[in-house]
Design a protein around this nucleic acid. Structure first.
Length: 313
DNA sequence: CACCAGGAATTGC
DNA sequence: GCAATTCATGGT
């Protein structure tokens, strides 16, 4: 949060964030709007609505973009605490969610001399790596997405959230908070398989919930580890968390710039498509392609994912 | 109706 | 160690 204080202004009824270049709110919203089935935020035009937990209550924010270099955050509900506290919490959430602490200038400079990256940063100029700040959510979402199509993953997430999460309704819209690990750790196996999770995935989710409940895995603890390798080692101790999931979480929750889910099928499709290949790239080809981008694998991967949202031709 | 999906654990050699 | 197998259901 090095630059947070200098970029955020409290206006009493709302806060504004001056966004560091390069940044495009439009690109961020395009990514947030990628699934009709998303249940943890709502996009209406150019406004993004999201609920976040405040103490034991729920605050609901509306995020908009009054000027190109400014994000505005208002509250639809302050969760029973002081408005200024809830606004600050909302601003901190958006700051992390949209990865506004990152300096993208070096990545964009690297891209100017690289044909592939140049295409990506031109097409999606200002896109930030949208995060999943809650560790339990990031782990669960990764596990839910293992080996199934994304549309089904969103359906599973919605069922999971609506079965075990908490909700608040404001102005006719319902906003959900992702379930707490303690709640999930208490479930019987059948309560998860009933939602469409396979037996194994149900076990994985319950296992992750137990690790988190007993404090064996915490975001703070993982952030304190010296490097990505240590993070992957720690996370893969959990049954159900392999290298793909560990790198996914490192990338979207812990903000490791070198995190690289190299076995990601979506990434394979995106690379194949952007480079005009007839088949999916091999692991070796991916290694060669990404080698010059070392230190920026996470952003390169994220931009490739964004590329999948674009129409085929 | 096949084929596959933003994988991981287990098994077999 | 590494490759093959199993899991297991909805989307297209």
């Amino acid at each position: 949060m090095t630059r947070f204080n200098t970029h955020v202004e409290d206006h009493g009824t709302h806060v504004t964030i001056h966004t560091p270049d390069p940044f495009s709110y439009q690109q961020v919203v395009a990514y947030l709007n990628r699934s009709e089935n998303e249940c943890l935020h709502r996009v209406d035009g150019a406004t993004v609505y999201k609920a976040i937990p405040i103490n034991t209550e729920i605050a609901v924010m509306a995020v908009s973009n009054p000027t190109p270099s400014r994000i505005e955050i208002r509250l639809l509900e302050s969760g029973g605490c002081a408005v200024s506290d809830a606004l600050l919490a909302a601003a901190r959430y958006v700051w992390e969610w949209f990865d506004l602490d990152a300096n993208l200038v070096p990545f964009y400079q690297l891209a100017t001399g690289d044909p592939v990256l140049k295409t990506l940063v031109t097409d999606y100029y200002g896109l930030r790596l949208i995060g999943v700040p809650d560790l339990f959510e990031a782990l669960c979402w990764a596990v839910m997405g293992q080996q199934i199509n994304l549309a089904f993953a969103y359906t599973l997430k919605r069922r999971f959230v609506e079965a075990f999460g908490t909700r608040t309704t404001v102005r006719g819209h319902t906003y959900w908070i992702f379930p707490d690990a303690c709640r999930i750790s208490e479930l019987t196996p059948s309560e998860l398989t009933a939602l469409g999770f396979t037996t194994r995935k149900s076990e994985y989710l319950a296992e992750i919930a137990r690790w988190m409940r007993r404090g064996a895995i915490t975001k703070q603890g993982l952030l304190a580890l010296p490097d990505l390798e240590s993070v992957v080692d720690a996370l893969t101790d959990i049954r159900g968390v392999g290298k793909w999931t560990a790198n996914y979480v490192a990338m979207r929750c812990l903000r490791h710039r070198s995190a690289f889910p190299i076995d990601d099928v979506g990434l394979h499709h995106a690379v194949s498509r952007l480079l005009g290949m007839n088949q999916k790239p091999t692991r070796e080809e991916l290694g060669v392609l990404f080698a010059p981008w070392h230190g920026y694998e996470a952003y390169a991967t994220f931009y490739f994912w964004r590329h999948l949202l674009a129409p085929e031709y």
